[in-house]
Design a binder for these strands. Structure first.
Length: 817
RNA sequence: GCGAGAGUGGCGGAAUUGGCAGACGCGCUGGACUUAGGAUCCAGUGCCCGAAAGGGCGUGGGAGUUCAAGUCUCCCCUCUCGCACCA
């Protein structure tokens, strides 16, 4: 009688049928009146087959897409691959095969796995960023940025491996050495391409307000990354040369406490000033050391290190002469690369001052502390207080006085209010092969010349030597870079850098809206129709860079009139990571668990349910804790088996459905709907399990359960799409797919309880639980409570001093002793 | 150091507004059944005392507010994540 649940038989059958029926194609007919829903998942990087992180992310993303379709939306749920990048190139180097071969093989593997998992993707919109028809438009967008002055070249410090003769990303520098050959990494000044994201710093910060459904921590990370600080620019003068040097400070109110001045080691004036001051022989070793230190290690520099330059800076507020130093604790990349040092009120300056025996002068007296002598201090005082030793500002309350000080500086022409951002321009040049070539030609006559749009894409050559060493593969190619200048026809050379893969992934969600479009990267009307995306799902590892770059692109394209909105994803959901034993899975630890073996053994539905039932979607899943014995049948698989027999039995039973089951069904619909809206897949599944158990009990008692069965199957559809489809069409006998049916509707009257368990407390302790009508009056509730024998026993004859009645949930009888 | 978040049974986790702590599932214990299977089904399962009825304790620790605290306030401890010389 009961149907046996056999995922291996059921699932592949539906994969083929769904594909044939084409039910996951987004409908782009303007006549379709259903509201649109763009369910966007972060596209994967094809570095092998799908891993557990993908399984978790896409189980959730697919549940959202399917749920929204059942809710009556015209859903677009596309998929693609972020297919350029270093991994492919490194794999190619290791295997001796071209990066394209490895990449496309992995894409096919992942695509096959996604199909087997039954993901509801609209395959007709697939993108692969390494396809020439995709990177053609990446290049086209680069040229638009170039025209707008948003793409430019300048010198930059990069990590350089002297043996491999190549630039390294920060991630490729391990303990100051090249990850491939172990050679100590140096710093080099190279001319590189940048995107001018700093032009958008303020808007990227302000528009955080529009990100209504982003996790707080991601918003915070973006804010911190942009790093806005308000303060002032103040101009000092070098006494020996009379030249001006400007610093940025957030504390102009401490100007009177400046006792020395510090340049970053890399500051362009350091060598000249040191030579002038006669100290270059002392300064040079420090400069040399800094050059030989990787950018990564540079950040861990000793905060006490530094050398006197032999020159002095004149403080504009009081004309005092203070010594100038060069020290690695001052960063060239922030502010102006030079600082005024106030050791009494800045911790870093304090440490340096003590190490170099420099004076410490208190200029802010904290309200709640006795007067402190600078020489006796053990740490800097950064707090509020009254300005002292500060000329006409003595007695002003800090930090409220900052504005006044700035005004005064401005009047003197020695300073002005200023805002500084931590955000740097985006370095997009990569001296690598496997990326989109930068579509620029360098002409001896005309400089940087854009490749004309009609000559795009600038194709990657196939016959390349991508082994490490020497110049980058494109630069080394014998013929590729030699072209004529598009402007004058003279002999010229192509730019041999490729773009950072984050450029490719900053606009793929626009391309999904206009698949195959040949007139541009996308049609404005398509993008404006589908976007902003209704939901973006992906890993929190992209909290800063990817999401910030996408936001930047969107604003830049808006400014160019190419789209009609400024934020691409107002709703963001981060799934947790899948880890093992508290640590990330990795080959070296040998703790990798893969989803496809689980799919093959227990089915895709079971794999999905394991991920979704393990806990809240945004929490990490520790596989070691949830998995148990790998040969043991997973609990969710057992549940699916019980669902099969329950639905089967329900359809076979003729008896009418009891009211209690109907009520539970409506209550479940209400609760699961709410859970699905909030990504509470784990509690949604738990509620469906409760309903399954109630169906079983009803059927075992000889009563019906058909209504419950139908509702259960539809609600199961987003979470376990194969099992739901099999039950819907083969057991319930519906003619079309459960995935094009509609989400059940609950009757609020039935979803509400008619009876409630009323808790009766004595002195706040539960003494009895009584089943009462949900609309019981306060008086009846109290009377019922007092009528309880258990309550009477607990009262033990004592008088009730106070009664709290919260009908129908609770009565508390308070006895004062 | 700064910022954000979290501590609940043996385990994963439930518990919109303060109102039955531990839903649901795993595991475990006992039993039934058998076509001995990836079984299935039934009962039990926070801790302590007790044969039971019942009672006491219990959400990292300590105070507080309240008739009532996992939930609110203060202090402390631990862990996770992010940033980390940002002037």
């Amino acid at each position: 009688m009961s149907r046996r649940y056999d995922a291996a038989e059921i699932e592949p059958r539906w994969v083929d049928r769904w594909e044939a029926e084409g039910q996951y194609r987004a409908v782009d007919d303007p006549a379709d009146e259903r509201p649109r829903f763009y369910a966007l998942d972060m596209f994967p990087y094809p570095s092998g087959d799908l891993h557990m992180g993908h399984a978790e992310a896409f189980s959730g993303g697919d549940a959202v897409a399917r749920y929204q379709a059942l809710r009556g939306h015209n859903v677009m749920h596309p998929i693609g691959w972020d297919a350029f990048g270093l991994n492919a190139e490194n794999a190619a180097i290791k295997r001796g095969t071209p990066p394209a071969e490895w990449t496309y093989a992995n894409i096919e593997q992942q695509a096959a796995s996604f199909r087997r998992m039954g993901m509801s993707f609209d395959w007709s919109r697939r993108v692969r960023t390494c396809d020439p028809e995709y990177y053609r438009w990446t290049q086209w967008l680069f040229l638009r940025f170039f025209e707008q002055g948003l793409a430019y070249r300048k010198g930059a410090q990069v990590n350089w491996c002297p043996k491999d003769q190549t630039v390294l990303a920060n991630e490729q520098v391990i303990a100051g050495a090249c990850e491939r050959c172990g050679t100590p990494v140096e710093r080099r000044e190279l001319t590189q391409w940048f995107f001018k994201i700093t032009d958008y710093a303020q808007r990227l910060l302000d528009d955080v307000e529009l990100l209504t459904d982003w996790p707080d921590r991601v918003v915070t990370m973006q804010r911190n990354w942009i790093g806005r600080s308000e303060g002032a620019e103040v101009t000092f003068t070098i006494e020996e040369t009379g030249e001006d040097v400007t610093v940025f400070t957030t504390r102009p109110d401490t100007l009177w406490g400046v006792t020395f001045f510090v340049f970053a080691i890399e500051h362009p004036d350091v060598q000249r000033l040191a030579e002038l001051g006669g100290t270059w022989k002392d300064v040079e070793p420090l400069v040399r050391k800094a050059q030989q230190t990787s950018l990564v290690d540079r950040e861990a520099a000793d905060s006490k290190e530094g050398v006197f330059l032999g020159v002095h800076a004149v403080n504009p507020v009081n004309g005092e002469k203070v010594p100038c130093y060069a020290a690695p604790y001052v960063l060239m990349g922030y502010g102006t690369g030079a600082i005024m040092a106030v050791p009494a009120h800045d911790e870093r300056d304090f440490v340096f001052a003590r190490a170099h025996d420099l004076p410490v002068r208190v200029v802010i007296q904290p309200d709640d502390q006795p007067e402190v002598d600078g020489d006796a201090m053990t740490e800097a005082m950064a707090g509020d207080g009254l300005m002292v030793n500060s000329g006409q500002f003595d007695g002003e309350a800090s930090p409220a006085s900052i504005g006044k000080v700035i005004e005064w500086l401005q009047a003197k022409g020695r300073g002005r209010a200023a805002v500084n951002f931590r955000l740097r321009d985006w370095l997009i040049s990569r001296q690598r092969y496997w990326g989109a070539p930068i579509p620029i030609v360098h002409c001896p006559e005309h400089g940087e010349v854009a490749v004309p749009d009609d000559q795009l894409p600038v194709l990657l050559p196939k016959d390349v030597d991508f082994q490490p060493g020497g110049e980058s593969p494109l630069a080394r190619h014998p013929t590729w870079k030699h072209v004529q200048c598009p402007t004058c026809g003279a002999d010229a050379t192509r730019d041999t850098d490729t773009m950072d893969t984050f450029v490719d992934s900053s606009w793929y969600f626009f391309r999904y809206c206009s698949p195959g479009y040949e007139g541009g990267p996308f049609r404005r009307e398509d993008v404006d129709r589908w976007m902003p995306a209704n939901q973006y799902t992906g890993g929190v590892e992209h909290a800063i860079l990817h999401l910030l770059y996408c936001r930047f692109f969107t604003k830049a394209l808006y400014d160019m009139g190419m789209i009609g909105f400024v934020e691409p994803f107002p709703r963001l959901m981060n799934q947790g990571q899948v880890i093992y034993g508290g640590a990330s899975m990795s080959k070296t630890k040998g703790n990798i668990v893969e989803p496809m073996p689980i799919v093959e053994r227990w089915g895709a539905d079971t794999m999905r349910l394991i991920m979704l039932f393990a806990g809240p979607f945004e929490d990490d899943i520790d596989w070691k804790l949830i998995a148990g014995d790998p040969d043991r049948r997973p609990g969710v698989h057992q549940w699916l088996g019980r669902v099969f027999t329950a639905v089967d039995d329900a359809m076979a039973a003729d008896a009418t459905e009891p009211e209690s089951l109907m009520r539970l069904t409506h209550k479940t619909i209400k609760g699961v709907t709410d859970d699905m809206e909030r990504f509470r897949f784990n509690t949604a599944i738990s509620k469906l399990q409760v309903l399954t158990n109630a169906m079983r009990a009803s059927l075992d008692a000889g009563e019906g359960a058909r209504g419950a069965a139908r509702a259960l199957v539809v609600m199961l559809a987003p979470l376990a799409p194969f099992a739901a489809e099999e039950l819907w069409r083969e057991v319930i006998g519906e003619g079309s797919s459960v995935h094009v049916s509609s989400w059940p509707v609950f009757d609020p009257a039935l979803a509400a309880d008619d009876t409630v368990t009323m808790v009766v407390q004595v002195n706040g302790r539960v003494r009895d639980k009584i089943e009462v009508s949900a609309d019981i009056s306060e008086a009846d509730a109290e009377a019922t409570a007092r009528g309880s024998e258990r309550v009477a026993r607990a009262l033990d004859g004592r008088d009730v001093a106070k009664t709290i009645v919260r009908a129908p949930k609770l009565v508390n009888l308070v006895v004062r002793d």
